[in-house]
Design a binder for these strands. Structure first.
Lengths: 222, 222
DNA sequence: GAAGTAAACTACACCGTGCAGTTCACCTTG
DNA sequence: CAAGGTGAACTGCACGGTGTAGTTTACTTC
């Protein structure tokens, strides 16, 4: 950890290489890092998972650590883009049934698609490695990951408030904070941030209860 | 990880040894595991931290892994006991100023005392290692750790509701969930569960805002 | 003499590199 | 356009160096 800003000439930003190899390496690295954590994940295992020679990994990435950081960047962007899409999809056009819209959005945010499972696993590893990660990496991750999602959620909820679907009187940011706290944070905590499976009906119950509380706080004036 | 239930005769439950050594080992293990994580923490480092021979560690504990599990048990109990005490202290006797009581409790729960820092660090490691931990360890930790705290909080908040200090109509468990979600979960997330320091005034702002939201939801009928 | 200490030791896993040989994409040339 | 050359990318393997879990041994202390 804490790399010293790539001193030498590295293959870092070389877009060369046979197509597919780079992608296979990154995908495999995400999978293995997510499954094993940083320390336990061996470069040999990543190479095997990618169906690639270990030497090839070092052709594309300077270091185990730089490989990890590159994959973290990709993953946070992918997760953020996916979640922003979810938010726009469920909250984009004025919904007739606000409770239903918030509930399905909450569920979608709380239980990650299996397609993105490895990305979310990697987010857990970021949490675990946070004390050993260079601060600028954390900040960058915050900015391109959760920060963007939170901002998008605030934007959409602010629009709903502006349209009268939610009570006014609070900033959009507060709405976003309260939504994530009440609707998703308990699911995250109960499942140890997705590490342990949580029964579907339990998830639903938590989300529905959270939405109810959120609407009790910020729902349309009665 | 995933030990196979201690097959041989082990020093596991032997209360022998010079007094103080065992405690020093456990304390050092907690510190080093908390600081480095499971994989990075070496038994040599723990021995050095404890001012003890490595052999002595293996006299008291079967294994690096069993050492880790033992320390986890201790830590979760210590954290739980400490937090239960906080809850009783701030919510035990009917308070004149409910807002102030909830705020100071929230602050106390959100920023751990430096005395318990290593315990909280270890909790982060539990999160990180969760996928590699035997399930019964997780369950046991849940029960003796967060579960007990949550139950105590529900109990006290239920009493307040019964005394009219909070609005009725919800179960004590829901009160406890909403309190932790609104008051502490954002602090935890922002600080990556305590891994990164969070400015004191920022913490205060989050806690106060959370208490305000909690009271808007469940505060005494106006 | 039971418990602890210090240091050496075994056995292994891992990172990163070197290198000889192979494969593939592309480009020259007839 | 097709045969053939060219060079970069890739493979497979072995190796040096390092770190670590756990054991052993000889010695010390209470």
């Amino acid at each position: 950890m804490t790399p010293s800003a790539a001193p030498r000439t590295t293959p870092e930003s070389a877009p060369t290489g046979r197509p597919g190899k780079r992608a296979a390496i990154d995908c495999a690295a995400r999978t293995v890092f997510g499954r094993e954590g940083y320390s336990r994940a061996s470069v040999d295992a990543i190479a095997a998972e990618a169906g690639v020679s270990k030497r090839t990994i070092y052709n594309h990435h300077q270091d185990k650590e730089h490989l990890f950081l590159a994959v973290v960047q990709q993953s946070s962007q992918a997760v953020a883009a996916h979640q922003e899409e979810l938010i726009d999809h469920h909250l984009g056009s004025p919904e007739a049934d606000l409770t239903a819209a918030l509930t399905t959005l909450g569920r979608a945010l709380a239980v990650p698609q299996t397609d993105f499972e490895s990305h979310f696993s990697l987010v857990r590893v970021i949490f675990a490695e946070a004390p050993h990660l260079p601060p600028h990496v954390i900040e960058s991750w915050r900015g391109t990951g959760p920060g963007r999602v939170r901002a998008r959620l605030a934007e959409r909820l602010g629009e709903l408030a502006g349209a009268g679907a939610l009570r006014g009187g609070t900033t959009p940011e507060t709405l976003a904070v309260h939504f994530t706290q009440l609707v998703t944070s308990e699911v995250y905590e109960r499942s140890l941030h997705g590490a342990l499976p949580l029964a579907a009906d339990e998830t639903n119950a938590l989300v529905e209860s959270g939405v109810a509380a959120f609407l009790a706080l910020h729902g349309p004036a009665s």
